[in-house]
């Protein structure tokens, strides 16, 4: 800008000196004047608008980023809370499952349904189809099971009746019969002595 103004001034001065060389004094002496800068009034509005737009869009972007970050952190918090809740629920369910699957509970529920442990395991050998062991129907306990929860109460009597029906005609297990015979023939009075002299069996 300054260079251009100087340049213009130089041109003007040069233009001004030319008549002086003709040495013609008089009122015709040209007036010295600055050449008006050519673009002194270049439109400022677009520039201001540009800067303003840049600034405001930057600000907006920043605001947006902050909002997004804040929103994410809220979401994170929510998700963490729900993850903790789910983890707690999982743990509670796992514990409840473990309680339900505990052998004592299963055994109790099975016997409430009239089931009895099988005392006569038997296997079929696939290679020759032979039955190993002595399969026998289970013997239901004589009285209805004492712990009878309401949902299974209806199933329990039928099941025990059925089981009892199967083994109704048969005598008790062989081992038991013989055990009783032997037991009857034995003297149940043990001898006590100060040194072990052979009351052991």
């Amino acid at each position: 800008m300054t260079a251009r103004t100087q340049g213009t001034a130089a041109v003007a001065r040069h233009a001004g000196t030319a008549p002086r060389r003709s040495s013609r004094p008089g009122p015709l002496r040209p007036r010295l004047a600055l050449v008006p800068p050519m673009h002194a009034t270049a439109p400022r509005a677009p520039f201001v608008l540009l800067i303003g737009a840049l600034l405001s869009s930057g600000l907006g972007l920043l605001l947006f980023l902050h909002t997004a970050l804040a929103e994410d952190s809220f979401r994170l918090e929510r998700l963490q809370a729900s993850s903790a809740l789910l983890a707690d629920q999982e743990q509670a369910l796992e514990q409840s499952l473990a309680r339900q699957a505990a052998p004592g509970r299963l055994a109790g529920r099975a016997s409430a349904l009239g089931m009895v442990p099988s005392e006569n395991p038997a296997f079929i050998r696939l290679s020759d189809g032979r039955v190993l062991g002595k399969p026998k129907a289970g013997v239901a306990p004589p009285p209805p099971p004492p712990p009878a929860p309401s949902p299974s109460a209806s199933a329990s009597p039928t099941a025990s009746a059925k089981a009892a029906g199967h083994s109704g005609g048969k005598p008790g297990p062989r081992a038991q019969g013989q055990g009783n015979r032997n037991r009857a023939g034995q003297k149940p009075t043990p001898h006590v002595e100060a040194t072990p002299t052979g009351a052991a069996r």
């Binding site: 005392e119 006569n120 395991p121 038997a122 190993l132 062991g133 002595k134 026998k136 297990p173 062989r174 081992a175 038991q176 013989q178 055990g179 032997n182 069996r201």
Partner: peptide, 11 residues
Amino acid sequence: GTAPMARVPGY
């Protein structure tokens, strides 16, 4: 023997 009660049927 002294322990017929200990039998496991089939085994």
